[in-house]
Structure formats: structure tokens, C-alpha cells
């Protein structure tokens, strides 16, 4: 009988451990996605900032990275014509303002998505927390049974 009880507890603990592992993996996957999204958002924000600041400059100059850590100082003759990849490798010509609007819209979308992912992480973390608590109580119960004398 005692053996059976111990088996049940061991099985439950094993199962809870699996749940916890699975939740941890999920959180990791979501966190990676969130990180990637944040990277893309930052990149977009840089582009927006660049486009906005170019408009006000006289003789605007940018640093063009050519690989290997090397950059060239490049004069931009036309700051109001932007070539923009809108998807499927289709590049369209847009004005500076149109491009900024487009990119800002994209940033809003990314922020909304990041919020959703963060919510999912929170949800999974809560589940993981519940499982961890159950595991803890199962462990302490098992320990109590194994050392009944300590209590008395």
C-alpha cells in the first residue's frame, strides 16, 4: 500500500516536472520571439529617426556601411525619395513622409504584437508558478511521510 502511494507520488512529481519543463521551454521560445521583435522595432525606429532628421539638414550626409566594419560618408542628394521594400521583395518609391508613416504604422503593429507575446509569457509563467507550488507541496508531503519522527 505504502509502495503504491509512493509510486503515485513519484508519477505525479514526474508529470509536474514535465509540465514545468514544457512551460519553461514555452517561455524561452516566446522570449526569443520578443527579443527578435524588439530588434526589428529598434531598427525601424532608427530608420524613422534618420528619415526625419535628414529633412531638416542642409547638405545631408549619412554613414553608409559597406561591410567589414568600414563606412563611407555619403551625401544624400534627394531626401524625399525613399526606396522601400514593402514585402515579397517588392520595392516601391515613396516620399519621406509616406515612408515615415508606413514605418511608424509597422512599429505600432510590432508593439501590439510584443504586448500579446508578453501577455502569453505572463500567462505561461503563472501556470509554471502554479505547477512549481504543487511540486513543492508534493515534495514536502513526501518528506513528512519519510521522516514522521521529526514532526513529533
Amino acid at each position: 500500500m505504502v509502495n503504491n502511494m509512493e509510486n503515485v507520488e513519484a508519477r505525479e512529481l514526474q508529470m509536474l516536472e514535465q509540465y514545468l519543463k514544457q512551460f519553461t521551454q514555452q517561455v524561452e521560445a516566446y522570449s526569443r520571439q520578443l527579443e527578435m521583435l524588439e530588434g526589428r522595432r529598434m531598427e525601424t525606429a532608427t530608420a524613422v529617426e534618420t528619415l526625419k532628421s535628414l529633412v531638416d539638414q542642409e547638405g545631408p550626409t549619412v554613414l553608409l556601411q559597406i561591410g567589414g566594419g568600414a563606412s563611407l560618408r555619403v551625401h544624400v542628394p534627394d531626401t524625399d525619395t525613399v526606396l522601400l521594400n514593402i514585402g515579397s521583395d517588392v520595392v516601391v518609391e515613396r516620399t519621406n513622409t509616406e515612408t515615415v508613416d508606413y514605418l511608424e504604422e509597422r512599429m505600432t503593429e510590432m508593439e501590439a504584437l510584443a504586448k500579446k507575446i508578453a501577455e502569453s509569457i505572463e500567462q505561461v509563467q503563472k501556470q509554471a508558478h502554479d505547477v512549481a507550488k504543487r511540486m513543492e507541496s508534493a515534495y514536502s508531503q513526501a518528506q513528512t511521510r519519510m521522516n514522521p519522527g521529526i514532526q513529533g
Partner: peptide, 14 residues
């Protein structure tokens, strides 16, 4: 067409 492309629809589908 632009709207579809901007929303990640493949070119041939557009």
C-alpha cells in the same frame, strides 16, 4: 496590390 504586399501576401498571389 500594395496593401496585400504590405501585409505579407506573396507576389504571385497578389
Amino acid at each position: 496590390e500594395i496593401v496585400l504586399l504590405e501585409n505579407d501576401v506573396a507576389l504571385q498571389t497578389v
